[in-house]
Computed example of a mutant assay.
Amino acid sequence: MDAGDLYDRIGAGYAVGRRTEPRIAARIWAALGDAETVLNVGAGTGSYEPPDRAVTAVEPSAVMRAQRPPEAAPCVAASAESLPFADGAFDAATAILSDHHWRDPLAGLRELRRVARRVVVFQWEYAQIPRFWLVREYLPELTASLSGRSSLTERMAALGARAEPVEIPWDCADGFFHAHWRRPEAYLREDVRRATSVWAGVGPVVERRAVAALRTDLDSGAWHARNRELLGLATAELGARLLVSD
């Protein structure tokens, strides 16, 4: 299933649950440097599109495109692996938590490099994901699904990019999978889970088991006993990376 098909199925309501986190946005926008024209690939509902640049969005899902606000950048229905733009058409290109859904992520990243002189990608280092408490303690099935995905080194090579760690604030406004690392009760909420593709990927049986186990551990205090060191942190290093090619 490609990104368009997936988000046509699960993307309703993403505009509510997935919003721009200003502290992460500041890092992304600073990495754009002096770029005046920006291509945003896998643009979704328009989060993280800089308001002071000329942005063109690419989003394959009609459900996601329909949720973009009227003031959002113009949006083209296309796939990352075959961008309908000339070589060097943009000063910069971005992909924000989207390349893991592309049919061929490395080919898509090379396409971004083809159409822009600078590329900025915000994504996770997949090798770090099994260390997140939600995966380690409740969703071990997710670890198996990461097998075969492009490594951070491979993605950096495809872009000719460096990688910078991005710490996630405890009160992150964007509801991506790791966002509630210090707010475990949030994962008990249906609307929170529906705002990320992970839960659709593991399936309803695994989801119900994980949510029930988390609820039991929160009620008993077991979660807090195991993860008490998180409660005093303002930010956490969870494997988020900013890939920047110059």
Rank of each mutant, 00 (worst) to 15 (best):
M1L: 13
M1V: 14
A3E: 13
A3Q: 15
Y7D: 13
R9P: 01
I10S: 04
Y14N: 07
V16K: 12
T20H: 01
A26C: 01
R27T: 03
I28L: 15
G33D: 06
E36K: 14
V38C: 00
T45C: 11
S47Q: 15
S47E: 15
P51T: 11
P51H: 10
A54H: 12
A54I: 09
V55C: 02
T56I: 09
V63M: 09
V63W: 00
R68Q: 08
P70I: 10
A72P: 00
E81A: 04
D87M: 00
G88M: 06
G88D: 05
A89P: 04
F90M: 04
A92R: 02
I96A: 04
L97P: 00
L97T: 15
H100Q: 15
H100R: 14
R103W: 04
R103Y: 03
D104I: 08
G108C: 09
R110H: 05
E111I: 10
R113K: 13
R118D: 01
F122D: 07
W124R: 11
P130E: 05
W133G: 01
L134K: 05
L134Y: 08
L146T: 08
S147A: 14
G148W: 02
S150F: 05
S150G: 12
M156V: 01
L159R: 03
R162V: 14
E167V: 02
E167W: 12
W170K: 11
D171K: 07
D174W: 05
F177V: 14
E185G: 11
L188V: 09
E190F: 12
A200K: 12
A200I: 02
V202K: 08
P204M: 03
T216E: 12
D219G: 11
D219N: 10
W223G: 02
R226S: 07
R226H: 02
R226W: 02
E229I: 05
E229S: 14
L233S: 01
A234C: 07
G239N: 00
L242I: 01
S245N: 03
D246Q: 14
